[in-house]
Design a protein around this nucleic acid. Structure first.
Lengths: 246, 246
DNA sequence: CCTTCCGTTAGGCTC
DNA sequence: GAGCCTAGCGGAAGG
């Protein structure tokens, strides 16, 4: 395909805020927070309706180069090549794609307003525990979620156990690491400073990394096995019940 | 386009290990480490030569759903829809794309063997310091890089200053956080245990977060302002000199 | 296999 | 805007 024709199609696609898909032979340069260069090769260039730009190689999940939404895109033909530049300010970054040959170019005006629902997240694990506190242990009563722990940050759930002890629960959707243990401990230190009582520490996660299990013991942190999937099931059940009652 | 025809094109593209680009009206379901669902909408489906699958909405940098390289892909037409499933084992995950209408489908056999060079990384910052230790301070002499610090991990650079004090340098390509300070301190504790001398601690980064600057003072960690870009420039200069001399 | 750590992490949220 | 944290993080390197 002639480059001038391709440039015109690109400009028209950008003007009409379409999704543009171009395949061809290109070089890619990036300069900004870091910098990179990628020599000649056959790739796919995607320009989205919101100014996102992605360069994909023929393999691999990740784009090799990109520019996030909102970048300003220019298209010029010069010295026998087609140059597409995407700039953003703050951070100031520029992506330059130098296209030597265009194999195909398509543009589509796509309409997509469906909403995306993600489940079995850490957020759902928290909601499941608030709905069904015995997931942590019998008699556990949540008092606050997202309680501030001084300078250290926020704890996921703050509550009391059946004997009236304070309890701090930290939730992870993946196996707990020693870093997670240290974080929980530092939260609890802050809370102890504030309230004068040392809360119990419970780490709720689907498992523990080996290195973390040593630290659990060392710091007196308790572990409660809890998977994101199980929490998701519990919420579904609860929701089903709600719908049934409502 | 007829779905049967589309299915045949997809199968042929997968068989021939081509890059496939499909646009159409589709629903998407994912189940694995988490789960998600996305109702009907117009999107772009990318199937790469290595079995990566990406579903892109018309806006945004990230794919809304995906499957990494190596997933097994099946294509069937059933009940008037085209269903593309991508499975992977370990973790067991499945991505199901239900295509109701196909607007376009292309497949390309792309050849791309160029190598990708990334600059101004943390690794380059380290190499710049090893080449030009005065970037840390006059008289600094690196002894080892990636020295083990007991259980705590590895320090970026280990050396001595002009007075013979041990020095541990931790490098970050972004502003240093309080977590970075704590990490450096824990490395140094391990090294002190091992060698019986407490090294100086230097955090080299383009800047410090406010919360971290408090901790710098508290733990006696020194800060050396150093940007990835400057390090990249120094390496380029050094390399230029090498080429000139060679 | 597991663990650790980097990344132009991105993206979301709060202050 | 800066800071903080999560993510189906992905990917690489090392044990």
């Amino acid at each position: 395909m002639r480059l001038k024709e391709a440039a015109e199609k690109l400009r028209e696609g950008i003007r009409s805020r379409s999704l543009i898909v171009l395949t061809g032979l290109m070089e890619v340069f990036y300069e900004g927070r870091a910098s990179s260069s990628l020599g000649e090769g056959e790739r796919l260039l995607l320009i989205k309706q919101d100014g996102s730009v992605l360069v994909h190689r023929p393999t691999g999940y990740e784009p090799v180069n990109w520019q996030p939404p909102g970048s300003l895109i220019s298209v010029i033909v010069k010295d026998g090549v087609l140059v597409i530049e995407a700039r953003r300010l703050s951070p100031e970054e520029i992506l330059r794609v130098v296209v030597k040959k265009v194999y195909s170019i398509e543009s589509h005006k796509l309409e997509d307003s469906a909403d995306f629902a993600m489940h079995a997240t850490e957020e759902e694990m928290k909601r499941a525990i608030l709905l069904e506190p015995s997931l942590i242990e019998e008699g556990f009563k949540p008092i606050e979620d997202e309680r501030r722990a001084g300078r250290a940050g926020f704890v996921d759930i703050f509550g009391v156990d059946s004997s009236g002890n304070l309890v701090v629960v930290e939730i992870k959707r993946r196996n707990a690491t020693s870093e997670d243990v240290r974080q929980l401990v530092s939260y609890v230190k802050e809370i102890e400073k504030e309230l004068g009582r040392r809360p119990r520490m419970i780490l709720a996660a689907p498992g523990v990394q080996r290195s973390a299990s040593r630290e659990l013991a060392a710091y007196g942190v308790e572990f409660k096995c809890l998977s994101p999937k199980r929490c998701h099931e519990i919420l579904k059940r609860g929701r089903g019940l709600e719908e049934f009652l409502g």
